[in-house]
């Protein structure tokens, strides 16, 4: 299994598309950062216009922490799309180039092979988000400095600099669990459909559907609590003034459970299918 994982990592490392993906993430981030600057500016004006009735402000709320937060809000559609394209390509390219045949004429276990693909997909997702986080913090803090973070989530919440930084960090970690779910889903779609273009279309459709479902208010029903799109928003909970760690951990655990189920299903299908 280790040898398979090593082989997958090596292929990922040597493929030009990996670097295009990471480059796209940085580029996307830079664009978002500058649009975030103007968004953040407008947002603070709106939020603070009411408070200006009773308060003066000392200090700048338009700082690196706010911009990292805006990036965080914006990235959760674009990033999974990019990840789904790259991750599904881990398998569809092998179907397309026929290298899957070359692999399975060797004494290789199908389950272990596809499991190694899943493992590398999740690892790549973690690395991509870590890279995103690093560049987001780096660029934002370098250009815009640090300071208090203001977030509106049921109430106007003010977080001091260090507290804000940790909340943002944990939010990225929580978001990583969500992104891993999407990556695993895209690989499973690739197992089913094999063709690169069809897989991309279906993965994009899945993402769009997820975003639409996110906007539906399921209230306090079970759907609202257990639907994967709702669980995937757990990162937001770090920006309530009092963090409900129990709920966040539970949500992410359930989401990891869903990820495991999707992965298991994909492995089962791959194992029983012919390598055409």
């Amino acid at each position: 299994m280790r040898a398979l994982i090593w082989a997958e990592l090596y292929k990922l490392y040597r493929q030009p598309r990996t670097y295009y993906a990471l480059g796209a993430i940085v580029l996307m981030e830079v664009v978002i950062l500058f649009s975030a600057y103007y968004q953040g500016s407008a947002l603070i004006d709106v939020l603070m216009s009411t408070l200006k009735q009773s308060f003066y402000f000392k200090g700048d709320l338009l700082n690196g922490n706010l911009l990292v937060y805006v990036i965080l809000n914006t990235i959760w559609f674009h990033l999974p799309l990019l990840l789904m394209i790259i991750v599904s390509g881990l398998l569809t390219s092998e179907y397309k180039d026929g290298t899957l045949r070359s692999i399975f004429v060797q004494p290789v276990s199908k389950s272990k092979f596809v499991l190694s693909k899943y493992f590398v997909a999740m690892l790549f997702t973690m690395v991509a988000i870590f890279f995103l986080m690093l560049t987001a913090f780096g660029l934002s803090y370098t250009i815009f400095g640090r300071g208090d973070l203001i977030v509106y989530l049921d109430t106007l919440n003010f977080f001091e600099n260090n507290d804000a930084m940790w909340r943002l960090f944990w939010a990225y970690l929580s978001g990583t669990v969500t992104m891993m779910f999407y990556s695993v889903m895209s690989l499973t779609i690739a197992i089913f459909f094999r063709d690169t273009t069809i897989t991309w279309i279906l993965a994009t459709f899945f993402l769009i559907l997820s975003n639409l479902m996110l906007r539906v208010d399921f209230g306090t029903s079970l759907w609202g609590k257990l639907l994967y799109v709702k669980l995937g928003e757990s990162w937001q909970h770090f920006f309530y003034y009092d963090i409900n760690w129990q709920e966040i951990v539970l949500n992410n655990t359930i989401l990891l459970g869903y990820t495991a189920i999707v992965m298991g299903f994909g492995i089962l299908v791959f194992k029983h299918r012919d390598i055409a």
Binding site: L43, V46, L47, S49, T50, L51, Q53, S54, Y69, N73, V151, Y152, L153, D154, L156, L214, R215, K230, E233, Q236, F239
Partner: peptide, 17 residues
């Protein structure tokens, strides 16, 4: 203190409030 006509952006952040 009292704030008159509190304005808050519903759809900006906090999508799931």
């Amino acid at each position: 203190f009292e704030l008159q006509k509190l304005r808050l952006p519903f759809n900006f952040f906090g999508k799931d409030t």
